[in-house]
């Protein structure tokens, strides 16, 4: 699949990454998507691998997921200051959990990366606390229907936009966003980041909200 982020003009030097710039990027993105319609109709490789694992217990596909996620999960774990061996224990536990709980993966609700992120964060929190991390009640999901393909693609596009917003950030801003999502900032520190970096991400998140909200209402 074409890496869209590489084809997009970066924000000009010195420009801030306010919602305006992001909105501008979204506009360019829209023009692009007209030319690249074919790219918009395929799920990501990760989604295909994960569905093969879920539906066929496909070990080859799992190996592909391993190659993509293991080095990233390890990088995430190493940031907490643990040793390489400890970080690889986390990698192993997270990916084995993904294998065992594959039935819970629903591409219409979450990207593979988002799902793996949740498993990895749960694991890291459980490591430092006695109590299991509280999680919301699982929704009872109806059987998949035709609408799901559309939702899955909408989610893929939303993630593409988030990815672009992240790659357009200045290095120090990007570092701040990474810290926030990797559990290195407290909620008060996140709150204090009313400035640009998280604002950019937030504006992207807001765009995805209406769709997600609509989807969830349909489940009721």
């Amino acid at each position: 699949m074409l890496e869209l982020s590489d084809t997009i003009e970066r924000a000009p030097d010195g420009a801030d990454t306010s919602a305006g710039v992001v909105a501008g990027m979204a506009l360019k993105r829209r023009t692009l998507s007209v030319d690249k319609t074919t790219d918009q109709t395929t799920p990501t490789r990760q989604t295909e691998w994960m569905l093969a694992v879920r539906d066929r217990r496909d070990k080859q596909a799992f190996a592909q997921l391993f190659d993509f996620y293991a080095p990233r999960i390890k990088a995430m774990a190493l940031r907490t200051g643990m040793s390489g061996a400890e970080a690889e224990d986390i990698v192993q536990e997270v990916l084995l959990t993904a294998w065992r709980k594959a039935a819970q993966f629903d591409p219409a609700r979450a990207q593979v990366s988002s799902w793996i992120y949740q498993i990895a964060r749960n694991r890291q929190v459980d490591l430092v606390r006695k109590e299991r991390r509280p999680v919301p009640e699982a929704l009872t999901l109806p059987e998949e229907d035709e609408g799901d393909a559309g939702q899955m693609l909408a989610l893929t596009q939303e993630a593409d936009k988030l990815r672009q917003a992240l790659s357009a950030l200045a290095p120090d801003q990007r570092e701040m966003v990474e810290k926030a999502y990797l559990g290195e900032l407290s909620h008060t520190e996140i709150q204090a980041q009313t400035g640009l970096p998280l604002g950019t991400i937030k504006s992207r998140i807001r765009l995805g909200l209406e769709r997600l909200r609509h989807e969830l209402k349909e489940l009721r």
């Binding site: 990233r72 690889e88 990895a120 966003v177």
Partner: peptide, 25 residues
């Protein structure tokens, strides 16, 4: 808030994808 949380988790997934890879043993 479930939708808003899932949006936050989507952002977390994107951050995870974009991390510089660590070498595995």
């Amino acid at each position: 808030c479930r939708a808003r949380l899932e949006a936050e988790q989507a952002a977390g997934g994107v951050v995870l994808e974009a991390l510089e890879c660590a070498d595995l043993s």
